[in-house]
Design a protein around this nucleic acid. Structure first.
Lengths: 148, 148
DNA sequence: CAAAATTAAATCGTGCGCAATATAGTTTTG
DNA sequence: CAAAACTATATTGCGCACGATTTAATTTTG
């Protein structure tokens, strides 16, 4: 009873590290890290977003994203350019190499699918529960002490 | 269909960050970080372990643990001492302050329990599925190319 | 018993994550 | 329109995470 929440926090912590370790050797041939790969995935869904927009999707601020995106640019996967209609914003867009990587990712997805060894239903259920958990936690973060 | 595994990896990634962000303000008054807190939790379960033993439980190597434990020692929560029967090993043990923190953690657990907003059954189910996922992923890591 | 192999920690370099700060561009207000 | 407020991004500092290397202690082998 007293250790249940602890078990959950440790379970999430361990699963995140295990996923990271599983992806690492698959991404290494492409010179990508796991967070960089996740950033690329969001661009595959919608190209040409701002740094702020990416940060909201990923839950990361510019302190994390700015250097990460610079490395993605240096590796040739993306381009960064100031929005000419609002020079404060930086638009991030995929290069040909960045788009080509989406096709390479198919093999990676298959490897990860094998490694998880879950049924589709189990994956969907787990993903849904994690999204719900994250939403509740971030809802709590947003609340102020005004209620007290 | 094509994005299911991606959704899982992103769901775990986001949940881990959300948990970290939820713990941070609760741990900040004690000068502890989330990984330091997790390390303390393993010592509450079994005190006087070696760095290697802790690393196996936490899934961390000495490159991460050595500096983390030094900070925990500097903050007064633990003591580190070479094992006199095998001077290669460093034994990590709780101080009075480290043991007292276990009682303080009760309030933190309650806050986290509230923030997750899950039923006990839901927490147990989620934790169990994550442990199973982690075990499968680490099983894959352990496998060599000898099968191929 | 001495050389070689193994083991446990520590250290170093790189990248992620976040808080705090800085900088530059835009909008609002007087 | 100029000063103030706001917004987007970049930078800095600290801690975590991991691979690779180093150092010291123990065990194995010849």
């Amino acid at each position: 009873m007293l250790a249940l929440d602890a078990q959950l926090c440790f379970a999430v912590y361990s699963a995140a590290h295990a996923l990271n370790r599983t992806y690492k050797p698959l991404l290494e041939p492409y010179g990508l890290t796991y967070p960089q790969y996740i950033a690329l995935m969001t661009l595959w869904q919608e190209d040409g977003r701002t740094v702020k927009g990416l940060g909201e999707t990923l839950g990361l601020d510019s302190g994390t994203l700015s250097p990460l995106l610079k490395r993605l640019e240096a590796a040739g996967y993306i381009r960064r350019a100031r929005d000419r209609s609002d020079e404060r914003q930086v638009l991030v867009s995929l290069t040909d190499k960045g788009r080509a990587m989406q096709r390479e990712a198919l093999a990676i997805r298959m490897e990860i699918g094998k490694a998880t060894g879950c049924s589709l239903e189990a994956l969907q259920a787990l993903t849904g529960e994690l999204h719900a958990l994250t939403a509740r936690l971030e809802g709590m973060d947003a609340r102020d002490d005004t209620a007290a």
